[in-house]
Amino acid sequence: MKRFGLLCMALILTACSEKEAAPEPVRPVLSVKVEALSEENLGRFAGSIQARYESNTGFRVGGRIASRNVDVGAEVQKGTLLATLDPSDQQNQLRSAQGDLARVQAQLINAQASARRQQALFDRGVGAQAQLDVANTDLKTTQASLDQARAAVNQSKDQLSYTELRADHKAVVTAWNAEAGQVVTAGQQVVTLAQPDIKEAVIDLPDTLVDQLPDDVVFSVAAQLDPSIHTTAIIREIEPQAQSATRTRRARLTLTDTPDGFRLGTAISVTLSSAIKPRIELPATALQEVEGKARIWVIDTQSKTVSPRDVTVISRTDSSVVLAGGVKDGERVVSAGVNSLKPGQSVKLDEDSQ
């Protein structure tokens, strides 16, 4: 009986020893790879691609628009007919001027004949000097009237040509401000033409941000529908005053290059960034507070074990923390479940981090 008791005690001690020697279970963890930030994101803003040079064109005479020959978005060449006015008034003015010219031309023929007759009589000694002077004066007056009539005809022809609105250069029609049948005045804006050769990015920036832009700010421009179409830009001009309704100032950016996908009117996304001293940003769940100190758990990717490391926090939000150091670029850090880890504990990495 005594031997049986000793045997049971030995078995119990052996079981306890094996239980104490059991290894820590492997714990699955989520993790992130550390990437040092060398740029500070100052914001992202929506904008569009526009032509640097635009012209608001109108007729040089007033009248009723008879036709509109092109639509918005059409590409036009120099001399392309854009719109016409009803030319009735200008045609009547031209006919009137041409009639006056014909009348003066007939008067000139008579004045020339009269001057020649008076000169012949005076040369034979039978004509008076006074009559010759009157004939020559009438001739000069009629000649001046002829020049005036010719100028009136040319002016009427110009007025008639002004009833046709033509493109002054190769352009794209971006807006119409009048329709067929509408009466417009001389110089009134009718159509907007944009030169497609030189394009730029246009965005509206908050007034408070404009005054704080650093000198080394970088503008990254990408198409909203296809971010793979992108380039960089620099500021060309910023409006000196903010718009009263939105408190924003319009900025025009010169593109470093112009990808083919950047057509006039393309919606773009512009990201502002500035170079900063390298720092680390991690999810807020990766940080553990122990006795007033901040620490993270770094994973040894070879042995699949974790170890704690003290860090210095620069700033934090509800979702992230920014560290001044304590971890190197490229290391892997546990991003969730840090409160249940122990030094040297084996972990199983999530599939996304492999």
Rank of each mutant, 00 (worst) to 15 (best):
D207N: 14
N41Q: 12
R60M: 13
F59Y: 04
V104Y: 02
K328Y: 05
V298P: 03
P87Q: 09
Q93I: 07
A286W: 02
Q90M: 07
G181S: 04
L146Q: 14
P23F: 02
A46Q: 13
R68K: 15
Q50M: 08
A175C: 04
D352F: 07
S228L: 11
Q189E: 10
L193N: 06
K33C: 03
P196I: 11
L81Q: 08
S335L: 04
Q302I: 12
L349I: 09
E40V: 02
K140V: 14
L6V: 12
I229S: 07
V210N: 08
A178E: 01
L30Y: 08
Q224L: 13
E237R: 15
D310T: 13
Q188W: 04
T141F: 06
P23W: 02
I198L: 13
V347R: 01
Q90W: 01
F219E: 03
G181D: 02
L165I: 07
I203C: 09
R103N: 13
E351D: 12
K2P: 00
R332T: 14
R117I: 13
S273L: 04
Y162G: 05
V327P: 03
A294Q: 08
S31C: 10
E331Y: 06
A113S: 14
D211K: 12
S156R: 10
L108W: 10
V270H: 06
G330W: 07
E351S: 14
I296H: 01
L165S: 09
N110C: 00
S88C: 00
G261T: 09
L85K: 08
E24P: 05
Q107W: 05
V270F: 03
Y162N: 10
Q241Y: 13
K348V: 06
R309L: 05
L139V: 10
V61T: 15
I276T: 15
L205M: 10
V322S: 05
Q189A: 13
L165K: 11
V29H: 06
T256I: 05
E281M: 13
T285D: 11
P23A: 11
A242L: 09
E54T: 11
V270Q: 02
P206G: 07
Q90I: 03
A336E: 13
L13A: 15
R124L: 14
G63E: 00
V104H: 04
D207V: 12
D257Q: 09
V134P: 00
T174F: 03
K348A: 10
D215W: 03
I49G: 02
Q155S: 15
E351K: 14
A222Y: 03
Q354L: 15
